[in-house]
Amino acid sequence: MADTRPAPRVGLFVTCLVDVYRPTVGFAAVKLLEDAGCTVEVPASQTCCGQPAFNAGDRATARDLARSTIAAFEGFDHVVVPSGSCAGQIRKHYPELLADDPAWAARAQHLSARTHELVSFLTDVLGVTDTGARYDGTITYHDSCSGLRELGVKEQPRRLLAKVEGLTLNELPGAEVCCGFGGTFCVKYPDISNRMVEAKTADIAGTKADTLLAGDMGCLLNMAGKLKREGSAVRVRHVAEVLAGVTDTPPIGEPIKSGRA
């Protein structure tokens, strides 16, 4: 049965960390969305969702950035974010931040209702059941806190990963326990953060997985950084890379092979 509806027009909110650290995740997200029949646009006027300011107690800056993000993403059918944390900021906290601002409250609500974390958008909104990818390896999956507890992202990535050919999922004990990243927390309280990420890498090692996946770059940089410091061979990737079959970029924290542009 041919679907005659126009392709959903999706605005990609790239997120700071994907933009600077790992553009591969952005392209993986675009591929997943286009494969599922969306047209994807990336407004150049986006910067950061403002969460660092919001969590530092600087509501004025957080509000300014919320307003500019709202303005940048008006007119899309959906806004998709390859991060539960940034998506949570837009969905849960923008309406709260701008509730008393008559010019912006409704616009914040409107954006909130149309904004989704990438994987849950694929499954829950588009009804994707299989991304047609292949990954030869045993993976384990860490549930990032904001995606899990603010947005209810739990089964969605597992459902899609189960369809990836060649992939085995070994569940991570304590998958729902924070990895110790927490934005500026990890540099403000490095010793406590270290204790938390140590516990996490010990759990990861216990799964015997060769690959660690998660849906948030912050957690991934933290866990990859610790695994590499410990000399672990576990490969670390954003879940979108595996679901899109975009795995030619070296895993997070691994050297870029010479000869490759």
Binding site: V18, F27, A44, V187, P190, A224, R229, I252, G253, I256
Partner: peptide, 20 residues
């Protein structure tokens, strides 16, 4: 604060916005 306990993964080298 970060590197006392863990490595800092290197970025790929170009931003997504630039490549897009």
């Amino acid at each position: 604060g970060w590197t006392r306990h863990r490595d800092m993964p290197a970025p790929e080298g170009r931003t997504f916005q630039q490549m897009w």
